[in-house]
Amino acid sequence: MDTFISALTIFVLALFVGFEVITKVPPILHTPLMSGSNAISGITIIGSLIAAGAKYTTLASVLGVIAVAFATINVVGGFLVTHRMLEMFQKPKTDRKSEK
């Protein structure tokens, strides 16, 4: 029960931190906010890593690999695509002739 209460405490406090921090994000950055927070939710990767490496059962190993792959797509893709977008918002930049 104690662990549950402390986990719950952390959950509730983190929600408040989230609300405070994210309400300060301006609308022009809402797309990067989504992709960036998305990448952060890929933190489940740490759960999948142990499962994939522990070799409990064959099923577990297979599921583990899939979970690692899914979470890695989420993490790598998420941070990278966010970076790509945020760079576009940075000044000063040379005029790119980037027609498509």
Binding site: I10, A14, S37, I40, I43
Partner: peptide, 11 residues
């Protein structure tokens, strides 16, 4: 996991 998850959930 709990902290990151709730940050994203809040967002």
């Amino acid at each position: 996991l709990i902290i990151s998850g709730s940050l994203v959930g809040a967002s």
